[in-house]
Computed example of a mutant assay.
Amino acid sequence: RTPLLALSGGLELLETEVREEGVKDLAVARDAAEQLGEVASRLIEEAAAEGNDLSAPFGGKTPPPVPQSPAGIPAQPHVLVAEDTESNRYVIERLLHDLGCTVVLVENGAAAVEAVRREHFDLVVMDVMMPIMNGEQATQTIRGLTGPAARTPIIGVTAHSLQSERERLLSSGMTACLAKPVRKEALETAIRTALISGRDVRKNQARFDHDLFRRTFGDLPAAYRGRMRDAAKKDITKYAGEVLAAVDSGDEKAFSRAAHSLTGVSLNIGATGIVEELALYREGRPRDEASIDPFREAVAACLLEIDDLYDALVPYDQ
């Protein structure tokens, strides 16, 4: 799987270099790489099931199953945006539409609280500095509501990137914080993390092998480290979602394929917590003795931690 992961990563890196006439060829290459990965995973699964006997024929004629939406993760997340500046509302709304979300807009924290009281939202994107009621006050008020509304994930958006402010906002009840200007990739990661977890994951410590994390990125040329980090977050989100979808549907083959892929990606960056919780779930799965919730929490905690760990352990790009 290591060279297959390298192939997929290389195709992702090529995306920024491919000109208009090469986009179609890149799409064909990605499709071929995905099919090759499916073949490899199925061969490995058959070998494991048959005592490492690779002699069984594999026709490869059956198309891979279409990934399903993970359990509890809507195909089109319904998002409330609280932002008092019109231009900022426009930018965030456009990013969310690009990510497949439906959007409701309000202009201050008080209006956000009333909207959450009246209507179900999968998550809230909350500006911090707003009139009438700021984002921190609105978050605390929402957390004080009764019923499911109090557990709505809230992603804070702030003009400051100070760690002290981020910690204060998380302590107020926010699920994650983003600094302006909001990047599409960072917003997507925050949304997927919130939807995968379905709860406040800040109390769950992400478990990493710090030495492996440092070596993985430090051994790369400086120009590729940020891309590797973004690719790792994207892959963990993708394969964790496929694991959850397979659990929900009861598809054992899809579960095994996604679990193998997720394990490989996680070990590449030393995300041992994901691997450990997935192994515990697989061990108890045949006896119906395992809950998938610790795995969900490990994935969400890992995704929230990657950027901070990267900033702390990886040399600055030169």
Rank of each mutant, 00 (worst) to 15 (best):
E20H: 08
A29L: 03
R30P: 06
A33S: 14
V39F: 01
A40W: 13
A40Y: 15
A40Q: 13
S41F: 06
R42M: 12
E50C: 08
N52C: 07
N52Q: 11
S55Y: 04
A56W: 07
P57G: 02
K61I: 13
P63H: 03
Q76R: 14
P77W: 03
L80D: 11
L80F: 05
T85H: 14
T85D: 14
R89A: 14
L96S: 02
D98K: 11
D98T: 00
L99G: 07
G100V: 09
T102V: 11
V103R: 09
E107Y: 00
A111M: 15
A115L: 11
V116W: 05
R118M: 04
M126K: 02
V128H: 03
V128R: 03
M130C: 10
G135C: 11
E136H: 11
Q137A: 15
Q137P: 03
T139D: 05
Q140H: 01
I142T: 10
R143C: 13
A149Y: 03
A150T: 08
A150M: 07
A150I: 02
R151A: 15
R151K: 15
P153C: 12
H160M: 12
H160W: 01
L162R: 13
L170R: 12
T175Y: 02
A176T: 09
V182N: 10
T193L: 08
I196L: 15
R199K: 13
K203D: 14
K203E: 14
A206D: 05
R207H: 11
R207C: 04
D211K: 11
L212Y: 04
F213W: 09
D219G: 06
D230Q: 02
K233N: 00
K233G: 02
T237Y: 00
Y239E: 13
A240K: 06
V243N: 08
F255G: 04
A258F: 03
S261K: 11
I269W: 00
A271D: 09
G273N: 09
I274V: 09
I274N: 04
V275E: 02
E276V: 09
E276I: 04
E276R: 12
E277Y: 05
E283G: 03
E283Y: 13
G284E: 10
P286G: 12
R287C: 00
A300I: 08
L303E: 06
I306D: 11
D307Y: 06
D311M: 01
L313S: 10
L313P: 05
V314E: 09
Y316G: 06
Y316D: 07
D317Y: 03
